[in-house]
Structure formats: structure tokens, C-alpha cells
Design a protein around this nucleic acid. Structure first.
Lengths: 346, 346
DNA sequence: ATTAGCACTCATCTAGAGAGAGTGCTAACA
DNA sequence: TGTTAGCACTCTCTCTAGATGAGTGCTAAT
């Protein structure tokens, strides 16, 4: 896999990738010699290009067009040629100013992050809020809406608020509900949702619980409340910006892309995968494994606070994306968001 | 404006509109005589069509194409020709089954409604959740996140939950917060947010309040909590379905439409206007006043519960939309949602 | 009033020519 | 032996011209 390229080949591959990123058009031997000062004739460049094509880094759409980088070409470029410059303090500050998190609750922050990512990159911004079940329990409140309908409000350590309506067959008074929430708040604080679930299930199994009406109700109520939250935690911003990209210029391509970006499920999938690893991750084209995003690359990074609630954010753009610009953007934004979330709980 | 058309003209106009809705292509005199049994020759139809064109109901893309209805033509069709059939009980039941509101909280319901509207109409579903300030106060809770950062959770009579983080300069203990929320809950229950705001402002002005620390804090805290909520209350579903419509088949049209549908502000505008009136409303093409939606029509209706929290829902599609199908869909869905919301508070 | 007939218009489709960009190969060159 | 100039070749893209066909508007006959 890690084939060795001569320095000349590397230079030429780099030139091709960069020219292609800039122009979105196949680049020819002539164009390269014109734009870069290799002291080589087009013919020599052609020879190198031919080699690169044999090795699978380049391909040509047809005989008499220039070459375009394959996914493998992009991969190589990103892995070994691309130098991600770090942001200067000034740039960092500027970026930081783009975000206005003042007094925002979680959802607003997520949305705002998406907007800015998309606005700065000119591609589509993607944010996945921390999974609720990865958060730490802080407080639970019950509010009786009507006979048999109870609104459960659940707050995590990070200030993430989740609410849900549950139906119960036996009616409960406000007083009973208060008792129950007091009990749960005392019992569960500081546990992660996974732990809470485990604990609840265990206790419910214990027989002696059955004799304590209040506890029993408390447990079954919170069980219901924490069950199967299917959350829609993905925020997509600036999808229509992608339509400006020449790779999505035909109606078919547009449709396909828009459908894909509308499918939250697909995006959740992708971002979930991103969460498995640390740092900035790059999925190139068919790496993303979904056929409808085959012309797209995804750059993601995770954010988290000390309590371990993990979310992901990123930018999705054409494979021919400006990686050198987007990578530091995603990287620093993730750090920024982590910091903001940590500040929230201090 | 209300020009008089002979019965024959009406019939032909109706035929043209319906054929155009079905085919998206200009309809010619020949096609009409073929498809409908007017006992008329194409030539006679042509004469009528020519008249209709003069009156502004039809236009032709070019000399040798058929005619297509103008917006005025559609308007007339909807106002006087279209018979919106009521849904049969069976259809109503079927529709009702499409929605699964069981145990859903407000946001989920809104989203689900959008999804179903879009799925059934094959156009784009639009839902605007009730404006928060139009809801009725039920309960407020404060949770101390960190030094100076307080999470406010506010619940309306309908079970709508709103949360917000506010920053305060003086720190408050959990006990103090509890006192404050008890006080507010006792004072404010049953008032609409507008009323709550008015009351708070009035009381803050009264001098004697200044001597009661707790009350003062309570008031200023809740003032901060209820201020300037800029909510993003619009749910758009199935935007990409619009790309299947022939009127949006070119890349330019697609881009324009997608941008418009991404602009929540624009949609909020439209739906806000819908709230001003009762019943099903239809905005045809440039009626919508926004240039980027000039090829679209919007069918909306409002939903509400007895407490007066009002939201809107609707379907946005091409002007050449299947009105006879979508109007009852929107109408009945609005009723359905109203009923569900009322059930929530009972 | 209605209709058949006919000339006319205009978009769409097709084929073919020409231009342009870029390649691959070969032979000459340093 | 690596590099380069030259040249034939390929393929896309664009432009033009002609053919096609749908549909109109007008006129004259019924």
C-alpha cells in the first residue's frame, strides 16, 4: 500500500492535486509546467503522470483529457504531502469571534457551530450533539400534564435538557411525583445514563422493592423515561452550498446529494463512526461507505467535556475539497466547543 | 377582478388546469378534445383558449406550444372551480394512523407531522411549532449549573418545554433557587407569556419590591429567562422531493429552491402570515411575495389547543400542485394536531 | 356559431464539421 | 540514459443546418 514515490513524482502528484482542487478540471501536462517551476518539459511530466496512473494515483476521464487524482491519490496527498498549517493566534481569535455562544443552550450551540462551519468552509456543516446516554445524570423532574400523562424533564451535568412525555396507567399526585423525583435525584446523581439504566434494572429485579410502593413507582417511571430515546441529534447547515460545487452540477447529482444530506440516519452513522477515534478524521469518497456520498469527503473531529459527553462535528464537501483550509477549521472548532462545554459546568 | 366566464370557458379552463397539473406540460387544443368529451372541435377550443389568454388566465411559453395556466388561472381554478372533496371516514382513519404521536413530546410531534405531510403529499412538509410567547405559563424550574450560570426550564400548559441558560452576577444557592421558583410558580400559573412579561415588568417598577430580596431576584431572574427567545421553530421535511418536480429540473432552479427552503427566516415569515387568518389558506406563486419561491404554492392551516397556543403547518409544492389532494390533507392534519395537543392537557 | 383546412412558427432532435486540448509514441539530443 | 521536440491520434465540446412535429391563428365553408 505504502508505495514509494520519487521526489519528482511526489511533486507532480502534489501539483496535480492542488491544481485540481483549485479548478475542478482535469489537469494536463502542459498546465503543470506552466503553473509550477519544475524544470521539466510537458513530455517528461507526461511520463511521470503515466506512471502515477499505472500506480493508481491518477486516472483520466477519457484519452484526451488531463488527469484527475483518484481517491487513492487524494489519500496519499493527505497522508504524506499535505502540510496542515496551524492557525495563527490571530486566525484563532478571529475564528473564535465568529462563534457567539453567549448564553446559549446546547441545541443553539450545536446549530450555531454548524452554521459557522458551513459559512467559513463554504461546504456543508455537520454537528452531532452528544448522545444523551453518554451524559451524566444530574436531575430529573416530573410534571403532571393530565390524567395519566407525565412530562419528564431530565437534565445532564452539562446542562443538556431532554424531555419526554410518558403515559402511566395509574394516576399520581403532584406530591407523589415530587417524592419520586426527590428520591431519584438523591439516588442517581453523578451516574452516567448507562449506569443509571443498569441500576434501575437491577433494583427493579430485587423483590423487596415491590413492597415499597413509592420506590417501585419511582423506578418504573424513570425506566420509562429513559427508555429508547431515539434522538435526532444531527444538525446540517448549508446543504445548498454544495450545489455550487461543479461535481454536483447535474440535476441527478444534485438530487442524490440532497437526498443523502436529508437522511439523518446516514449522517448519524457516519458521525458515530467518527466518534470511535480521536482527533481529526478524514473520510474520503467511498470510504464513507455510502454510495450516495461517493463524491464527498468528510472531515470530522470530536468534542467533549471532562464528564465525557461526546459529540462530533465536521464538514462535508466534495472529495476535491480544500483540505488545508478545512482541517484546521474543524480541528480548532472542536477544541473550542469542548472548551465552551467545559466552561458550562466548570 | 371577478370576471365572468361562460360555462364553456370554465369547463375548458378547468380541463387545462387539470391536464397541466397532471402532465406539467403545456396543453394544446387537440389534447383537450381528445381527453375530455366536450362536443367541440379543436378549433373551437382554440377560440376559447385565445379568449382566456386575453383575459390573463392562460399564457403560452411560445407561439407553437400549448397553453399553461397563469397564476391568475390557478387562482380562479382554486376559488371557483375546484371542489375539495371531503375525506371519507375511512380515509380519515387511514391518515390518522399514519401519525404515531404516542408518547411524543412537542418537538417530536412537529417533526413527525412534517414527515407525514411530506410523505403523503410528495411535496415538502412545513410545520411551525407554537410560538412560545403565545403559550400559557405552567411551571418554571431553575437549576444551578455553575457559579453564575443557571439553567432555566420553563414548561407551558401544553407541555412545551423551553430551556435557556442565563448568566447572573450574584451566585444563588439551590435553596434560594427553589424558593424563587416556588414563588414564581405560585404567582404566574395560568397567565400567558405576554401577561407574565407585563406582570413582571410592572412589579419590578414598584418600589416596595426592592425591599424584598427574594422577590426581586425572582423577578429579575424570570425576566432574563423569558427575554428575547429567538426560536427556530420551523421544521422542513422532504425538501429533496421537490427536486423530482419538473419545474425544478434545471440546476439553477434547484439551487434557488434549496436555498429558499434552507432559509428558515423566509419560511417563518410565510407561516407567520398564515397565522393571521383562519382555516386553510393558499398562497399561489408570487403571492408568497418571495422571489425565490415564485414557482411554489403554499397550502397552510393553523392548529391550536384551547389555551390558544397557535402553530401552523402546511405543504409547499410547485404552483402546479395537486390542490385537490393536498388541501384536505393539510386541513385534516391541522385538526388532528389540534386534537392531539388538546388531549395533552385535557 | 362551428369547423375543416392550411400556412406558419418555434422548440427539439439529429448528424456532421471543426476546433481545441491532451495524450502516447518515436526519434533525436545532451 | 534521462529528457525533449515533433507529430499523429483520440476524444469532447460547440456550432450549424436540416428535419420533425406539435400547436397555433386565420380564413373560408358549413
Amino acid at each position: 500500500m505504502a508505495e514509494h514515490l520519487t521526489e519528482r513524482s511526489q511533486n507532480i502528484l502534489e501539483a496535480i492535486v492542488e491544481d485540481y482542487i483549485a479548478s475542478a478540471e482535469p489537469v494536463g501536462s502542459r498546465a503543470i509546467t506552466r503553473r509550477h517551476n519544475f524544470n521539466l518539459s510537458p513530455a517528461s511530466v507526461r511520463n511521470v503522470m503515466s506512471d502515477l496512473e499505472d500506480m493508481g494515483f491518477l486516472c483520466s476521464p477519457h484519452t484526451s483529457a488531463g488527469r484527475i487524482p483518484t481517491e487513492k491519490g487524494f489519500q496519499y496527498y493527505i497522508d504524506t504531502l499535505l502540510q496542515v498549517r496551524n492557525l495563527s493566534p490571530k486566525e484563532k481569535q478571529k475564528l473564535q469571534k465568529s462563534y457567539r455562544f453567549q448564553g446559549m443552550k446546547m441545541e443553539d450551540i450545536m446549530q450555531e457551530v454548524g452554521r459557522v462551519l458551513s459559512g467559513l468552509s463554504k461546504y456543508t456543516g455537520l454537528v452531532m450533539a452528544p448522545k444523551f446516554s453518554s451524559t451524566v445524570f444530574r436531575q430529573i423532574e416530573f410534571i403532571r400534564l393530565s390524567q395519566g400523562r407525565i412530562l419528564v424533564i431530565y437534565v445532564s451535568e452539562t446542562g443538556l435538557v431532554q424531555n419526554k412525555i410518558i403515559e402511566v396507567d395509574h394516576s399520581l399526585t403532584a406530591h407523589q411525583l415530587e417524592q419520586i423525583s426527590n428520591y431519584l435525584n438523591a439516588e442517581l446523581t453523578g451516574l452516567s445514563i448507562q449506569e443509571v439504566r443498569a441500576k434501575l434494572n437491577n433494583e427493579l429485579k430485587e423483590e423487596r422493592v415491590l413492597y415499597d410502593q413509592m420506590r417501585k413507582q419511582a423506578l418504573s417511571l424513570s425506566c420509562a423515561a429513559l427508555q429508547d430515546e431515539v434522538e435526532d441529534r444531527v444538525y446540517v447547515s448549508g446543504a445548498s452550498l454544495m450545489l455550487e460545487q461543479p461535481e454536483f452540477s447535474t440535476p441527478q447529482q444534485m438530487k442524490r446529494l440532497m437526498q443523502a444530506l436529508e437522511s439523518k440516519k446516514l449522517l448519524i452513522d457516519l458521525l458515530d463512526r467518527s466518534q470511535a477515534a480521536d482527533g481529526v478524521q478524514i473520510f474520503i469518497g467511498s470510504d464513507s461507505s455510502h454510495i450516495d456520498l461517493e463524491d464527498c469527503s468528510l472531515i470530522t473531529s470530536n468534542f467533549s467535556n471532562k464528564k465525557g459527553a461526546i459529540g462530533s462535528l465536521g464538514v462535508i464537501g466534495p472529495v476535491r475539497m480544500d483540505y488545508s483550509q478545512v482541517i484546521p477549521l474543524v480541528d480548532f472548532t472542536a477544541q473550542l466547543v469542548s472548551r465552551v462545554l467545559e466552561r458550562e459546568i466548570e
